[in-house]
Design a protein around this nucleic acid. Structure first.
Lengths: 133, 133
DNA sequence: TTATTTACCTATTGACATAATAGGTTAATA
DNA sequence: TATTAACCTATTATGTCAATAGGTAAATAA
């Protein structure tokens, strides 16, 4: 299940992409347009800043903007950054402790395939595929 | 994220499929072979019984067995039953409250497509695809 | 009849993640 | 100097997950 964090992050990115020529966009504006609590967005945007997806400027006239062109972002990297991981089962997460049953596990190939499919799906899409213009 | 419940359920079903000619299989045996707490499996198997995927008989010589041939089960129905839903985002779950932003939502088509892909992936696989024999 | 086995039932629990909210400080501009 | 907006730390309610615990009912074998 993709959580609100990842979903909201994607919506913020889309919003910033659609206003990429309007200078720095205050989070207040994004929150109003997207009908999401500004306070909650602050938490999410912090991750986006840390991951170098967006950049922020304080003070009057400040706000956030994308670091790159919308075509240069994959949906996968946005989700992976904010969700922590795109892994579909615990065994396949980055921080998973090695499972000694792995070689005998009859279900692991299924999860691996699904995981790969998920990865390809989201990394195969660009932020620009989701914007209006 | 597929939880242990769905993953364990699938392993139980595989185990029962691989012993489908051995009469009723006590949960104790499954638990030992699969290295899963028998008590926890009881909860999971209860769902499988309620969903008419397996049938149980009490008492000595009792246990569980599949209701149909392994080819007759899709992986999707097993997971959907035990996980509650295969939905990948809350908006698309069966019990989701209708979202008034839906028609304007720029991300919904993406989630729908991913959801469909997930559905097709798991419903396109049979339990018999995962067994040894 | 009795002991044994096994499914079946209800309840509880610790741990953790989710989805926020609250209230402040720093930085930049008009 | 007032205002705007990012940035920071902490807290919290709610819910789900992954089990555990302790029993009752049913069926068979001795």
């Amino acid at each position: 299940m993709i959580s609100t964090k990842g979903r909201y992050a994607l919506r913020v990115m889309i919003d910033l992409a659609e206003h990429k020529d309007d200078g720095y966009i205050p989070l207040k504006d994004v929150a109003e347009r997207e009908q999401i609590s500004k306070k909650y967005l602050e938490i999410i945007v912090k991750d986006l800043v840390k991951g170098n997806l967006v950049t922020g400027v304080s003070g009057k006239g400040g706000g956030y903007k994308l670091c790159r062109a919308p075509e240069e972002y994959s949906v996968g990297e946005i989700l992976e950054l904010t969700e922590g991981s795109l892994a579909t089962v615990a065994c396949l997460a980055c921080d998973a402790e090695p499972c000694e049953r792995a070689s005998a596990c009859k279900t692991l190939p299924l999860w691996s395939e699904y995981d790969q499919m998920t990865h390809d799906f989201f990394y195969g899409r660009r932020l620009s595929d989701l914007t209006k213009n």
